[in-house]
Design a protein around this nucleic acid. Structure first.
Lengths: 144, 144
DNA sequence: ATTTTTTCAGATAATTTTATCCGAATTAAA
DNA sequence: TTTAATTCGGATAAAATTATCTGAAAAAAT
């Protein structure tokens, strides 16, 4: 469904707010450790999310990543997915046709529209705050 | 969503019944041409589907691929997907965790269950007959 | 029997995705 | 001002997926 990169991106974006709510910056190594991901690869993804304005990064000692408190509630799961995997999950044809739409649909087009609309809605309705809360209360997990 | 291999598999499985309904066997080259896929790679996938008992293949002149009439209605889209991509789409965690279930769910677990159940249902309710009919009536397309 | 047409099977190649490595740039602290 | 801790950026490597090539096996037609 999502690329590995996107999976790591989502996990990181779920963990970071947990600390940002207490104004704590988190380092790359802490993140990679907490979400059980390859460090250097994770760096690229975090960088990508920083460029997309989803998180803030600061260099130097005591530097790290952070999401401004106010944004934790407004950033949605879909924003992360879009920043990393692009619009393929929203626009792409289920069978990989270049041009597939209501005018010239592939055999599974209408079947997929239904599923994808629901997925879309879910991604745009789920905030990082909601995801982070699940973690904080011990209801959900990022490892194992 | 699906692998390229699976996309080709679905397309082939949509085209073949169109001919099988008229007791016509189709050759690899015709299939690859009709679904606009790389020939040799398509051969592998068709072979895989043959081993999974989803289609019949016969060698020699006038050989090719076929799906017994009676089975066109009972084979579901989900059978093709399972034969090629395995159960990843049914079982895999949205964030790639090894063990993710109601006991120890990932942050998006419950959100995904809903989507996946609908996808599952769709895949198991859609028969090759239904897909082929769309093609035959000119309602859907396999190329471009 | 021989030839021709086809799928089958294994080896190899190309591409994409995932992952690592290393040094540069930045910033805070000493 | 130096040092240490960190992200940034580009090069490279490894792994997985996609694609091609080549010859063997099977079966029908000649």
């Amino acid at each position: 469904m999502f690329s590995k990169a996107c999976e790591y991106g989502i996990k990181a974006s779920t963990y970071i707010p947990l600390q940002s709510l207490q104004r704590r910056r988190v380092s790359l190594s802490e993140i990679a450790n907490e979400i059980d991901s390859p460090t250097a690869f994770t760096a690229k993804i975090l960088h990508q999310l920083a460029k997309a304005n989803i998180l803030d990064s600061t260099k130097g000692p005591a530097g790290g990543f952070q999401i401004p408190k106010a944004r934790i509630d407004t950033i949605k799961l879909g924003d992360i997915v879009f920043a990393i995997d692009g619009d393929s999950i929203y626009e792409g044809c289920g069978l990989g046709l270049d041009k597939c739409n209501a005018d010239k649909p592939c055999p599974v087009h209408y079947k997929f529209v239904v599923i994808r609309d629901e997925l879309k809605r879910m991604l745009q309705n789920t905030s990082l705050f909601e995801l982070a809360t699940g973690l904080e209360t011990g209801l959900t997990y990022l490892k194992r």
